[in-house]
Design a protein around this nucleic acid. Structure first.
Lengths: 223, 223
DNA sequence: TTCATAAATGAATGGCATTCATTTTTATCT
DNA sequence: AGATAAAAATGAATGCCATTCATTTATGAA
């Protein structure tokens, strides 16, 4: 630090790199506290008051580190995105990589569906983990021989499907029980019953749709 | 309840059919008021206080007709479901019917994404309009020659895709702007730019994914 | 008219995110 | 070591929200 006395360029206070020494709170701590709160109490339990209490701090103290509760959700989202396995595109053939990536993506976010409405509309700017995932997936598509201008539409469609499927995965098993109105919907009721005792086929449906998307998109490769 | 008095079958108070004569409020009125409130102020503006005011009534009066705000959302959902065009399955060949139905479904719910988290998990019991839609779609699949036990998984997968796409449709155009981090994600950034001035291809993506699902599922027909 | 029931009222209640003036803590400079 | 300025934490508001409840009003049937 060759920092002489006169030095008008350096006006901001400095801090030793990587050491949040002077404060109880920082964004990383808030993120992990939010995640453990969600895993214990669900998204209804994720309130600024509860978050502050779990950190041993007054609620207003949080606002020195995040601008709003939405900021907290963005932090959680970034953390989750970093857990989606997009490394598979470096090791597996395209079809299998897409499949593994999609399952990983869906499994992670099916436990965090309240985030989906936030993510789906959230600009990717300043979201490094999210961008890193997109970069890895894009590279995988390029390597597999996709024309550059088809890659983003394919990813967008796959993501839409994954988000929708994440909701499905949390639905109750009897969601298709037609109850008293069964008589007026005979074909639908029969189709539901033909599935057997397990009436909600969210996993079968996910696999079938994913197969269709992979087959359809795979045909776009030029190489 | 042995009910000694004569006429034991008729215990509930009667009311002339179709005439909500004695009260200002009923569920139909609440539903249309909620819909017009949403269209004017969005889902943030849909509060019980605002809803009551738009009906010229005290907020607590609403609770004589609905159990909770979630009930209001269910009423709105049912109304929207009745607007999804599933009649196409009676007139068009299967591929075109699925396409038309899916576009109609997505277009309606892209203006009501806050409902999706409710719908996706909501049992279909006591939701006559929703059941009617499922019945029409199921009939369309049966007519097209699908094995009975494949129909529900296909519908579930299509719905997941439609719900996800409804979120996409509301995303800002610059959602994929990588900003300062563009240098660290060269392939993704290039792929986004190859799309041209319109950087968010939600319509192209929807069409491509829908084509893939229709092609993949269409192959399941046996007839 | 009488009476029971349904509907509407207005005043609570408790939870929520967020703000702000104030105090405390911390890091750096003299 | 002491002074100083910035960052961080505090506690007490604020305003909005869904929901409840005791009470009053309106309605239809007997």
């Amino acid at each position: 630090m060759p920092e002489p006395s006169p030095s008008p360029a350096e006006t901001k206070p400095r801090r030793r790199a990587g050491r949040p020494v002077g404060s109880i709170l920082d964004q990383a701590g808030i993120t992990t506290a939010a995640l453990s709160l969600v895993s214990k109490k669900g998204y209804d339990g994720l309130t600024m008051v509860a978050l502050a209490k779990s950190l041993g701090v007054a609620p207003s103290a949080l606002y020195n580190h995040v601008g709003s509760k939405d900021d907290v959700l963005k932090l959680v989202e970034e953390d989750l995105m970093s857990k989606v396995d997009s490394s598979v595109f470096q090791t597996l053939p395209w079809e299998e990589a897409v499949r593994a990536w999609a399952y990983s993506y869906r499994d992670i976010f099916s436990a965090h569906t309240p985030l989906i409405s936030v993510i789906a509309v959230l600009p990717v700017t300043d979201a490094p983990q999210t961008l890193a995932m997109y970069e890895a997936v894009t590279e995988g598509f390029l390597r597999a021989g996709f024309p550059e201008d088809r890659i983003i539409p394919c990813i967008v469609a796959l993501e839409a499907y994954i988000f929708g499927a994440a909701f499905d995965a949390t639905a109750p098993a009897d969601i298709f029980d037609s109850g008293k109105l069964a008589e007026s919907t005979p074909h639908f009721t029969a189709a539901v019953q033909s599935l057997g005792p397990v009436n909600y086929p969210s996993d079968l449906a996910f696999r079938m749709g994913l197969d269709a998307l992979i087959a359809g998109f795979g045909a776009l490769r030029t190489a």
